[in-house]
Amino acid sequence: MTTHGLMYRDDVVLITAVVQRGLGDGVVEAAVGAGAHGGTVCYGSGVGYRERLGVLGLALDVEREIVYVLVQRELESVVFTAMAAAEGLDRPGRGILFTTPVERLAAYGHGSAAAEEEA
């Protein structure tokens, strides 16, 4: 497909990962390895869990990275599994991972790929 311009898609989901600071790039890499085009990462902090631990909570880093990855629905489970396996997200305190539906997406590009992330 060679047409370029704004492309709209409605078969896309958003995968969000909330992980310990420093694990974000590994999670994006895993997603890219499984077929996603890239991700957007921002910094945040998670506090709930820390409060419950009381004084010992001081030993937990509150810093988190929030990772957004947009993928075609047909890739959802592959990418999701890859992201969950990366950086040991299945161990306690490492992170949260979930997907949310997206009504539609618009980006400049080509019809075949959903989330055009590159600069």
Binding site: G24, D25, V28, G33, G38, V41, C42, E117, E118
Partner: peptide, 26 residues
């Protein structure tokens, strides 16, 4: 709004996809 970094496949090196972070605004 908030700021973020975008990590995408910027080059097509075969050995390993290089992920170069760039500043984004969400």
């Amino acid at each position: 709004r908030h700021s973020a970094r975008g990590v995408g496949r910027t080059t097509r090196r075969r050995r390993r996809a290089t992920l170069i972070p760039e500043r984004r605004n969400v």
